[in-house]
């Protein structure tokens, strides 16, 4: 007889693995990728490929030569960072900038803290915000959808619906005038508008969410709480003064809200651990996003909102605990 193996219980495992989860997220990102290829064509392809390749490369180099570890680029997490970074960029961004973004994402956002599992901020967002602050012009020129399918850096550009709105409200145009300038809701839903390449198609992102929920890769708490908060908050504003504040549906379908709520806020490493904590986190992101969008200087605020709440995650973990068994005990009279 061979030697028996002895270990503490349990002796079976679900078969789940880091890889399975990471590749699950990648699959969930595919519909949005397809949509972006449809709307932005070559540009989207070039940006995505560059970003993913650069992230993988930096992860490999840093693990191998700086940290002297066995590289684990195939666990899928670097691919996700690359995809998410690309999804947050305009499809006409020059290759050099993408590579810088990838370097910041992986190098500063992730590896500087000790790699997967230890980074406090979502790496892709760190890269994106770095680029946004350093290269604001390139980062806010948005290629027009469909029209610029066949061109990359020289694509025709326009403003995002959120930017149109922000400018309009500032210059005192009425909501009725503005509604004519922005695409119809159905176009917003399908993604036919200017914006970062992965954020435009609401329908594709929602398919991704459904997939992740069914595979139990994430739980509903974060995406639902973010979206619900934005809807309620902007809904109240809209009710108070429809002339000044646009409808909640518009907020939901434009900008990076869905992409952020579904794919970035739910990043395992940087979001809270307990379900109540996740809800607090989601509500926080929702509130900050609306505050920035409606009252702040930038037209869009999802990235900042997520990063700010990332910073609160350790605090949330410390003070907001899961519901413990026995807390709802109803003492029984015999």
């Amino acid at each position: 007889m061979n030697k028996l193996t002895v270990s503490p219980s349990p002796h079976v495992h679900s078969g789940d693995s880091v890889k399975k989860n990471m590749y699950g997220v990648i699959i969930a990102l595919m519909p949005a990728l397809l949509a972006s290829l449809w709307f932005f064509g070559v540009g989207a392809l070039v940006v995505t490929l560059t970003s993913v390749a650069a992230c993988l490369l930096f992860e490999f180099l840093i693990q191998k030569y700086l940290l002297n570890r066995a590289p684990s680029i195939l666990d899928g997490s670097a691919i996700i960072t690359g995809l998410l970074l690309a999804f947050n960029l305009p499809s006409n961004l020059p290759i050099a900038l993408i590579i810088i973004g990838a370097a910041v994402s992986i190098g500063i956002g992730k590896m500087a803290f000790g790699g997967l599992g230890n980074n406090p901020f979502n790496p892709a967002l760190v890269g994106r915000v770095f680029l946004l602050i350093s290269f604001p012009v390139q980062m806010t020129s948005w290629p027009l959808p469909i029209a610029s399918r066949m061109s990359y850096v020289d694509a025709l550009t326009g403003a995002t619906p959120l930017a149109v709105l922000k400018e309009g409200v500032k210059s005192g145009q009425s909501m009725a005038e503005l509604t004519e300038k922005i695409p119809s809701s159905i176009n917003l839903f399908l993604g036919n508008m200017g914006g970062s390449l992965g954020e435009v198609a609401a329908i594709a992102l929602i398919i991704g969410l459904a997939y992740m929920l069914i595979r139990r890769i994430i739980t509903w708490h974060i995406p639902v709480s973010v979206i619900a908060t934005v809807l309620i908050f902007t809904g109240i504003l809209h009710l108070v003064d429809p002339q000044q504040y646009v409808s909640p549906l518009f907020h939901l379908l434009t900008g990076g809200l869905l992409l952020g709520a579904i794919f970035m806020a739910t990043d395992y490493v940087t979001s809270p651990m307990s379900h109540p904590g996740m809800i607090v986190f989601g509500v926080g992101i929702g509130v900050i996003t609306v505050l920035i969008r409606v009252f702040g200087a930038y037209p869009e605020g999802v990235s900042f909102a997520i990063l700010i709440m990332n910073a609160f995650t350790p605090l949330i973990n410390k003070y907001i605990k899961p519901k413990a068994f026995g807390e709802v005990a109803k003492p029984v009279k015999a």
Binding site: G115, S271, K323, A324
Partner: peptide, 28 residues
């Protein structure tokens, strides 16, 4: 089926927290 797979870093996925029937935070 007898041996465990090699362990990796905690990715803070919170799945252990969701699974715990006592509402504890096993990773912690």
């Amino acid at each position: 089926e007898a041996t465990r797979q090699p362990m990796q870093n905690c990715i803070r996925c919170a799945k252990c927290v969701s699974a715990c029937p006592m509402g504890l935070e096993p990773y912690l």
